[in-house]
């Protein structure tokens, strides 16, 4: 009920805003005047390969998580994760590797590790808030579960 009421009031205010714009007073109804400006941002990409520490063979379907991005290794054990909204400064990310494959397959231990982008160099920025992207290769070897 509260949501319906809020929706109605918001709708009425949108209409009033439109009418005021016609009258030349549109700026009055800006909900957050001059606040959404953009922000310094950069894309941090980590890619690599996941292999078995025992056999040195690539491991497929290992879950890799970095901040809000989740992916799974392909048949070659390769993965790529990214943070699209990072800060363009020295940054450290935690990478989580989880073996979620079928239990009939040999199981590997979890791995949490940190990767640091120290004084990163960015390419492809837009000369405004977005500074571009930077990439690191990071191969890991998972140990079998005992």
């Amino acid at each position: 009920m509260k949501l319906v009421k809020s929706g109605f009031l918001n709708g009425v205010n949108l209409l009033i805003g439109a009418l005021l714009a016609v009258l030349g007073f549109g700026a009055s109804c800006e909900r957050i005047a001059r606040c959404e400006y953009g922000t310094p941002s950069a894309k941090f990409i980590v890619s690599g390969q996941v292999k078995s520490a025992e056999t040195n063979l690539p491991l497929q379907n290992v879950r890799v998580v970095m901040k809000n991005d989740t992916t799974y290794t392909n048949a070659a054990g390769e993965y790529e994760v990214e943070d699209r909204a990072g800060m363009p400064i020295t940054s450290t990310y935690t990478l989580k590797f989880r073996d979620i494959r079928e239990e009939s397959l040999k199981q590997y231990s979890d791995l949490d590790t940190a990767i640091e982008f120290k004084n990163p160099v960015f390419t492809g920025g837009d000369n405004h808030w977005y500074k571009g992207e930077t990439e690191k290769d990071f191969d890991v070897k998972l140990k079998p579960k005992r």
């Binding site: 009421k5 205010n13 009033i16 009418l19 005021l20 009258l23 009055s28 109804c29």
Partner: peptide, 14 residues
């Protein structure tokens, strides 16, 4: 405009 805006403000209070 002020009358319309007065209504707008009342809605914002709510």
């Amino acid at each position: 405009a002020l009358n319309l805006f007065s209504r707008f403000k009342k809605n914002e209070y709510k």
